[in-house]
Simulated scan of single mutants.
Amino acid sequence: MAYSALAVANAFIEQGLRGNIPRLTPMKLQKLLFFAQSWHLRKNGPNAPLFDDNFARWKYGPVIPSLYHELKTYGSSPITSMLRNVENDDEGGFVLVTPSIPASDANAHELIDAIITKYGRLTGSQLSFLTHEDGTAWQLGLEDGEANGSVITWEQMASHIHPPSRMRG
Rank of each mutant, 00 (worst) to 15 (best):
A36S: 15
N47Q: 14
Q15H: 13
K31E: 03
H109G: 08
W58C: 01
A9N: 11
K43P: 04
T80Y: 02
G93W: 15
S81Q: 12
F51W: 13
A11I: 05
K118V: 05
I152L: 03
A56S: 13
T117R: 15
R18K: 15
Y3T: 04
N107V: 03
A7V: 07
D134A: 10
S76A: 12
T136M: 05
H109P: 05
A103Y: 12
M167P: 01
D113C: 00
Q126D: 02
Q15E: 15
F55I: 00
L127G: 00
F94N: 10
M27H: 00
H109T: 09
V86H: 10
D53W: 09
S100C: 07
K31R: 08
N54H: 12
L83C: 02
G19L: 14
V8C: 10
S104E: 11
L111G: 10
N148C: 04
S81M: 06
K72Y: 11
F55S: 00
N85C: 07
P49I: 08
T136D: 01
T153H: 05
M82F: 01
N107M: 03
A5M: 05
A137I: 02
V95Q: 15
A106M: 08
K28W: 03
K59F: 07
S4D: 10
Y3P: 05
A108P: 06
D105M: 10
E110H: 08
G93T: 08
G92Q: 13
I112N: 04
Y60E: 04
M1H: 09
Y3C: 04
Q30V: 04
F129W: 10
P78R: 02
I13G: 02
Q126F: 01
V95P: 03
N107Q: 14
E146P: 02
P22E: 12
W154A: 04
A5P: 05
S165T: 13
T153S: 15
A106E: 15
S125G: 14
H160Q: 08
A48N: 15
H40N: 13
K59Y: 07
G135D: 02
W138M: 00
F35D: 03
G92A: 07
D105Q: 11
E70N: 09
A9V: 06
S76Y: 05
L32K: 05
F12W: 08
E14Q: 15
R57I: 01
S150W: 09
N107D: 14
E70V: 12
G141M: 01
L17S: 09
P99G: 07
L127S: 05
Q139M: 05
L17Y: 10
L71V: 05
P163W: 10
V151Y: 02
N20C: 09
R168M: 11
Q37N: 06
A5G: 14
E87K: 15
Q156C: 05
R23C: 08
V97E: 11
D89G: 10
W154P: 07
K28T: 04
F35E: 06
S125N: 14
D113Y: 00
A158I: 04
K43E: 15
R42F: 14
K31F: 02
G19H: 14
T73E: 13
Y74V: 04
P163H: 15
K72E: 13
A48V: 12
G92F: 11
L41K: 03
I161A: 06
S4G: 13
A2M: 09
A137Y: 00
L71N: 11
L33E: 03
Q126H: 00
A11Y: 03
E110L: 10
W58I: 02
E91T: 13
P62A: 07
A158V: 07
P49N: 06
S4P: 08
A114L: 13
